[in-house]
Design a protein around this nucleic acid. Structure first.
Lengths: 158, 158
DNA sequence: TCCTTTCAGTTGCGATATGAAACTTAGTGC
DNA sequence: GCACTAAGTTTCATATCGCAACTGAAAGGA
């Protein structure tokens, strides 16, 4: 087994590793943040993020390959290409928001701009929290890591 | 302004960038996953993740520097060093869990091991979701990005 | 039509980061 | 003292990043 394969195995055995293989490179999250904030075109990403053009090209390509962004030539102006989030990409919002809230709380200390609000109440969204299956907030000491098979035996026994 | 400073500015203007500057490098998330799963010692991280020793050394150092891990020599065996999550580090759990759930849903397709359960009900925790200030689940079309100052004007007007 | 600009990349190349393996240093246990 | 363990550090090859310049196709205007 090659080194790359080994790595992929380490990564893939857990959802975190699997996810990181796809969005774990430098700039990927910032490109996605841009996409969530309405950036659509190569030049927009480039000037907005200040990322090198070759890297941007490479990252957009990877995100498209993995089905996180969708690449469509603009029929009205055939120079232009539109990148938009797929459902798979939009489903990364909780990741981006938890990361952002953590950064606001522990690093920058300030609320980021723009703010994501409830469209109707105009209230900023709530902090991301871990909850039980029935919706109670859980702190780390209310939780426990359990081996999958162990858990199955537990519930079978009950 | 140097290139590095420019980058730091781009990163820092938003919580996501600020967070990525600290935990955005390759392996950082996997090291944190390890820490959440109970890894404490250098050799444990190394054998468990298969990461190169120099990189591990560097990443642990950075995470300690940034106050995400705490480094304590073991008084009982002075060869050993214990790395444990600080509050700042533990507060990254929502990030790790959303990432993991996304990876399970869209990449690996399988629940990861071990499973995080409610200690008392033995139920796996709920999927991470975006909620309104009063706790309603929000989908992307219920939300809107608003400029911070714009929002202030809105609420002042009301 | 010719000329200029825009858009989305690609190419070349030096700087930086990563990875594997061997080495070091301190401490433990017999 | 001797073998072994834990936590790194060093060395060196390779891979990735980042900048600047370049390309090629398509608009847009005189």
């Amino acid at each position: 087994m090659s080194r790359a394969e080994q790595l992929r195995e380490v990564f893939a055995e857990c959802g975190i590793g699997a996810a990181l293989e796809v969005v774990g490179e430098r700039w990927s999250f910032l490109i996605l943040r841009g996409a969530f904030n309405g950036l659509r075109h190569f030049e927009e990403f480039q000037t907005n993020l200040g990322i090198a053009r070759n890297i941007l090209s490479n990252r957009l390509g990877r995100l498209v390959e993995h089905g996180i962004l969708q690449r469509d030539p603009d029929p009205a102006d055939r120079r232009k290409v539109t990148y938009r989030l797929t459902e798979k990409g939009r489903d990364l919002l909780p990741v981006l928001l938890s990361l952002r809230q953590w950064g606001e709380r522990w690093i920058s200390g300030l609320p980021s701009n723009p703010v994501l609000v409830d469209r109707y109440t105009r209230q900023p969204i709530a902090p991301m929290i871990v909850q039980s299956a029935d919706g109670r907030p859980l702190s780390l000491r209310d939780m426990e890591w359990v081996d999958r098979d162990e858990l199955r035996r537990e519930t079978d026994a009950a």
